[in-house]
Nucleic acid binder design. Structure first.
Ligand SMILES: [Mn+2]
Ligand SMILES: [Mn+2]
Ligand SMILES: [Zn+2]
Ligand SMILES: [Zn+2]
Lengths: 147, 147
DNA sequence: GGTATAATGATAAAGATAATCAATATCGTA
DNA sequence: TACGATATTGATTATCTTTATCATTATACC
């Protein structure tokens, strides 16, 4: 199913309503393949429509997460970011401490190993977050550094 | 070297001073093998000494992290916690979404696999954080749940 | 002891997310 | 199409944690 359809289905199933603001926000979010904070999305939408409030952006992002269209990414810098989830493979992140550049990583082997560890402890996994911090190729090279 | 000695060495090397408060806080922190928030440590110390301010607790925890005695643990609930690091092996966390119970996990194999992935992307790893969320054995069992 | 200056505690500021509330929009129903 | 219950909105405030400020006090080196 298409992402927008899935969101609207979610709204209906929850007894929530479609609104001009939600339509706009979902459309913009889906069009923007980035890790967006509430402020980020607010700024983008505001360029097109001055009548969208910050609170609505925050509320809509929460709904998007609930509906399974996005998930929260927390790099520990005090700001929640939201990234696409629906139709995207699970992945983790490798983040540069100097410039903030990051890459998405995935390893079936790694995931499997994690599953085994979880099982060994008798836990039932819901999700996990692996963040590896370090220096990107550019920042790690002595001589050239920073963004 | 003993942990307290290492901290005092750190202070001296930075041109910082030993104080009654720092001595107390470090002593209490090292005696408490838990994942403490600033508020947690403040509450504990306050029972013995009413003359320690919250700001000092926060500042001292930051120094403890800088000195390598502790590290920050962020489970994404908006509160920074601090856990022992010096003299402790690296480990990750497996956290119960229902009751908050968690266990510390470690796998040499997992660590090695992560290193390979980092290298493959040309990054230089500084540290990483793996948090696996799910249900603990108690909460996962249907019938019995919660704390 | 004297002195430069680091440290402290109380308080305010910052910065993000969540709650409040009167006004408005939505949507099933008639 | 109009009605009406109620979900939604935008502006604002509240909340919560971490960080900054600053006058006062304590430390360490001489
Ligand atoms: Mn991502
Ligand atoms: Mn731990
Ligand atoms: Zn970089
Ligand atoms: Zn549990």
């Amino acid at each position: 199913m298409e992402a927008i359809a899935k969101f609207n289905q979610f709204l209906r199933q929850k007894g929530l309503r479609r609104t001009k603001q939600r339509d706009e926000l979902v459309e913009v979010f889906l069009r923007t393949e980035k890790h967006l904070s509430t402020q980020d999305l607010f700024d983008i939408v505001r360029k097109k429509d001055k009548d969208v409030g910050y609170a609505t952006v925050a509320r809509t992002l929460k709904l998007l997460a609930e509906s399974g269209l996005c998930r929260v990414v927390d790099f520990g810098d005090g700001v929640q970011r939201f990234e696409h989830k629906y139709g995207h493979e699970h992945h983790d992140h490798l983040i540069c401490l100097k410039c903030g550049r990051f890459v998405e990583i995935y390893s079936k082997k790694l995931e499997k190993l994690q599953d085994e560890i979880v099982k060994k402890h008798g836990y039932i996994q819901e999700y996990h977050k692996l963040h590896i911090f370090g220096l990107c190729p550019r920042c790690g090279k002595p001589g050239k550094r920073g963004k």
